[in-house]
């Protein structure tokens, strides 16, 4: 039975969510990871001031996203990937992975935020703005790392490789995000703020476009 691209994508997203709910391994694993990381920070420097808080928050986010998203391709066995290859177009497959990882990162971002507030105090003044920024940040991080995870999965399922490839690319994104987030700690006028949002959005669109064009080439095995 031939199904449309949209239906295929939705089914694949559902399949990923179902697998996650059955195993619950990734969710709890990463949860533990977040809590222990933030707790270690708390033991070492207690309650940091807002600038440090912001920097630490984004570093924690970075490592959480690497861990959460590396799994999305590494968990698929070769046989299963081959099976999907015979069923769906690679573009639908990567879209499904992107959507699933965005959802996963949105949940993880909220958990990180709650943990950071619990263990490191709450210097945030403009709360809704900050939540918006971390959602945007989670979106950007998950888009980029999904593509990198797809590359790393092809290169002998090597998770360390993902960090090597990913960190330089994520650097400008993280700098932009932490700059944007700075506005939520004190009410100041930041020149060039809309421009930074625009740049971030443009980067995201660039990454999605590249993933859609390049992923089919990765999958020809």
């Amino acid at each position: 039975m031939k199904s449309t691209a949209f239906q295929q994508t939705i089914t694949l997203v559902k399949k990923d969510i179902l697998l996650e709910l059955r195993q619950k391994y990734a969710l709890y694993g990463v949860l533990l990871y977040i809590i222990s990381t933030v707790f270690v920070i708390n033991l070492m420097i207690g309650k940091p001031e807002e600038k440090t808080w912001n920097a630490l928050f984004w570093v924690v986010q970075l490592f959480v996203s690497v861990n959460a998203i590396a799994k999305s391709f590494l968990q698929e066995s070769r046989g299963r990937l081959l099976y999907f290859y015979s069923l769906v177009h690679p573009r639908n497959f990567i879209i499904a992975k992107l959507i699933y990882n965005i959802l996963l990162m949105a949940i993880m971002s909220v958990i990180t935020l709650v943990c950071c507030i619990l263990f490191m105090g709450n210097p945030i003044v403009n709360f809704p703005y900050f939540v918006g920024v971390i959602m945007l940040g989670g979106l950007s991080l998950s888009l980029l790392f999904t593509m990198l995870a797809a590359i790393a999965a092809q290169a002998n399922q090597n998770a360390a490789l993902m960090a090597i490839m990913g960190f330089p690319i994520i650097l400008p994104l993280l700098t932009m995000l932490s700059n944007i987030a700075r506005s939520s700690f004190n009410i100041v006028f930041q020149p060039g703020l809309p421009k930074m949002f625009l740049m971030l959005g443009a980067m995201d669109i660039l990454i999605v476009g590249l993933s859609l064009i390049l992923f089919p080439f990765l999958w020809k095995d």
Binding site: M165, I169, L210, L214, F217, L218
Partner: peptide, 14 residues
């Protein structure tokens, strides 16, 4: 060859 070509295009686009 295939994977590094994909990454190279990605790198140039950035």
């Amino acid at each position: 060859a295939r994977i590094s070509a994909v990454f190279n295009i990605f790198a140039f686009a950035l």
